[in-house]
Design a protein around this nucleic acid. Sequence first.
DNA 1: AGTTAAACCTGGTTGC
DNA 2: TGCAACCAGGTTTAAC
Length: 278
Amino acid sequence: MPELPEVEVTRRGIDAPLRGARVLSARLGKPLRWPLGVLPGELVGTTVGPVLRRGKYLWLPLVAHGADRLDGGLLLHLGMSGSLALLAAPPLPGAHDHFDLVTSSGTLRLNDPRRFGAVVWSPAMTAAPAAKLLQRLGPEPFDPTLTTQRFHAALQQRRTPIKTALLGGELVVGAGNIYACEALFQAGIHPGLRCDRISRPRAARLLAAVRETLSRALDLGGSTLRDFTDVHGASGAFQAEAAVYDRAGLACGRCRSAVRRMVQAQRSTYFCVVCQKR
DNA sequence: AGTTAAACCTGGTTGC
DNA sequence: TGCAACCAGGTTTAAC
């Protein structure tokens, strides 16, 4: 599910309510992608700090009080099917509720049917294990230092298809399968085009398209294909205005010709052969 | 070194 | 209706 807009929607939903909350208990369900790294009980007594996002990861600081407490935080990832809910009166955990953080301001609950998500303890965002997971991430899409020049220079160093590179997150983080397809459509670029064949003007157009696509999705509360909801249980609305994603055989949003589906790097790519050029 | 497959899981949909 | 095959918002790890 969750690409940058969904993760950011989630962050905004939990940041203010949880800030300053005291951790009362924690519970683990079935194993997620990686082990938590501490016993749930060791989190008790810490205070939640400002929630940050880096790429599709969330960082939840847990500040210690007293030397006998752990100081650090939790690095969370929603994987393909994860979502977080903030519950005032949580029902008994269901089959896919795999992590609860019970606080004085409500219970933060991770639901993740496929369990590709993760909750990992780390002493700091800049220390292992969090730093190891974050180290390979490219620049944030709204980072002002990510200029056309820098983006184009990074493109020139890669020979992979642009769609694959966008998914990889080394050029820029945040665009997953939906938004990579949509941004390439918006920029009029064929998903199979090699990165190093993209001219500087087209690179500028693509970077702008990535930014516009992600911010539009953010405004609409993200996309909900199946699992994703915000922390209040609300679905996103972006999927309804996708021009190409999941529209194989349907009319292109611009020229009305049939949208094509192909597979790149084991993922479906949707595109318009008329509107998107090599 | 740079790219591409395999792996991790569950569940919904499609097709025989 | 039953069952197999395929598909799904991701990303690390292993293998060409």
